[in-house]
Design a binder for these strands. Structure first.
Lengths: 335, 335
DNA sequence: TGTTATTATGAAAGTGTTTTCATTAAAGCC
DNA sequence: GGCTTTAATGAAAACACTTTCATAATAACA
């Protein structure tokens, strides 16, 4: 098979079999229009050269292109990776290539959203934790590209989301049930503009729970800081040093909660006795650190997204689905 | 958009904006080479017509498919993810799609290696931390698929690797220089059979360093355990409980080192006073945990792999490159 | 046998883009 | 003002096929 030479073209096959390229093309696309003898000769040449038509990829596998795209924020946050893992695992069993489009700016997101539906050559698209404008939704629908949104629902497209408000609420209720009355909140603020801010929803849940319990919180207890463990550590220190410090803290992401834990260790602060800490996400590292947290089934969300996508590709007439994944408290040692 | 009409081509845009198709092409591919006024006019025409370049025609003219594949072990270990991140970041600036092939069994690896060069429709391939048999190498070379191997060098293909032996050696030497004489080793053992085992090389470096220092180590000090933090914790406990315990421990992966750190916390063991710990990899989490470790530039290795690959795609006649990345001690608080 | 259909085939024109090369226009310099 | 650079642009070739159209060869029929 083709030792070292360039990939054979239709011309090589023509030379080999002594007919013109037109005939080769016909053998491939309309075999019945070619005389049996000639056809046989061409097939032999094709086999001998190991010829694979370039555009064959297109005609391959029925009408499908065999590719599924995932637009994801550039994976700095572990939660993106964990979702992606669920996607990769589920998809690897199917006969689809996984094409990754990482977004690191609004521009890039826009460019993906405007070109992929037209030219991306995709059977389906998953958009992870990124906002999709009305015009983009329309384009996706117009071009009939099966799509699943994660964390950013839209009535016209399939979606998988979690109930962030409820998550914030049950985290706070959990702390309340443990007897805490002075509960601080630490959220991330400076996620890049192109990405989503579930933190606000989690904060809302926190406020709801407190209000329902008739508890007033000094506004210094609510801290929105850059998504950075160093900052989380500083905030922890500041909170603890307050004249009347909180007894518990709800961190809107595990990543920040881990920063607080580390600060606590450095300050010799006993967790959870002196400060109870609950996180959100249930990252891999949360288990390792015995962090009490809200589990949002990151792997699972990726898996479900793929499943919805595949079923929608198989039957595009299927009505759009909106799935809300449950959140649950995972009780470990920090709260 | 696209209401019944044919999709607009570069010719339509040329007519609309009153310039030649060459200029349109330039506006799209090298905007800076076109006068600002003209450029503006072309952009307007593009917007007005809703023009989108046709990927297939583009690939044909470019003699490229616009796709680069990465075969990677299914990303359980954070180190794979970090390499992948370097790849994604570097590639996102180029005009290539990133196709991910995750491997979770030997079978799957074999099937990728045998089909991708033929039908994968790829311009280049990166094979991450996976063994490639002689026959597979031959196939890759025969079909002239530009390839870069990471962590598994082969004379006929480009490669990026790190010096694991040296890494093991300098880690051990670092501990020796700190005055330790009783140094334990913790490595991972049950990586799936299809994946690579740099642990043996790191262990070799460890042995070399000890031998050079004329130090004999009880063989119970060398532990090979499943890649699992729980096990790492158990091992840490066992080592400490020995009648004559080690004063330092070199863990072949940060992941295991972190498990040891946790065990130490639970046992109330002072680190590094009672047990110095050094890891290997310099994962993101290592910095967070102030783990002293051997840095192997994971992100960078992905970046370099892509750079080599792209230059090789641009000029396939270029001789193969073998890059060995340096390893360095990153001194933090645990050793 | 001469005429008409039918079948098999090749030449050549498309397909939509990139890129090289040549040309023109503008700018810089003495 | 003449000469040399430099910038901006278009013409045309290349890419790897598909498809149309014309032609040659064969078969069918009177």
């Amino acid at each position: 098979m083709n030792n070292g030479k360039k990939a054979p073209t239709i011309f090589d096959v023509a030379t080999e079999s002594g007919v013109s390229i037109s005939t080769i093309s016909r053998v491939i696309n309309n075999p019945e229009k070619v005389n049996l003898n000639t056809r046989q000769r061409v097939y032999e040449a094709i086999d001998k050269l190991g010829f694979v038509p370039q555009a064959e990829a297109r005609a391959r596998a029925l009408r499908l292109k065999g590719r599924i795209g995932v637009i994801t924020p550039f994976f700095t946050a572990p939660s993106f990776v964990q979702r992606l893992r669920g996607i990769a695992r589920t998809l690897s069993k199917e006969n689809f290539d996984l094409v990754i489009y990482t977004v690191d700016s609004n521009n890039r997101l826009q460019s993906y959203l405007s070109t992929l539906p037209l030219t991306g050559n995709l059977d389906g698209l998953i958009i992870m934790s990124l906002p999709v404008a009305e015009a983009d939704v329309r384009r996706l629908v117009d071009h009939q590209l099966s799509t699943v949104l994660i964390e950013f629902p839209h009535p016209q497209l399939n979606s998988v989301e979690i109930n962030d408000v409820e998550g914030g609420r049950i985290a706070t209720e959990y702390l309340l049930k443990k007897g805490h009355r002075r509960i601080a909140f630490l959220g991330d603020t400076d996620l890049p503009e192109y990405s989503l801010h579930p933190v606000n929803l989690r904060l809302k849940g926190y406020r709801q729970a407190l209000e329902a319990a008739g508890i007033d919180i000094p506004h210094e207890f609510v801290r929105l800081e850059p998504y950075d463990q160093e900052r989380a550590r500083m905030v922890a220190k500041e909170l603890i040093d307050m004249p009347n410090p909180p007894t518990a803290l709800f961190a809107a992401t595990d990543f920040q909660a881990l920063g607080v834990l580390k600060a606590a260790r450095q300050l010799g602060l006993k967790i959870p006795e002196q400060l109870a800490v609950i996180g959100f996400d249930d990252l891999d590292m949360a288990e390792y650190e015995d962090l009490t947290t809200i589990r949002q089934h990151l792997d699972e969300s990726g898996k479900i997204a793929i499943e919805i996508l595949l079923s929608h590709i198989a039957d595009p007439s299927r009505p759009v689905q909106h799935i809300t994944l449950p959140v649950t408290v995972i009780e470990r040692l920090t709260a």
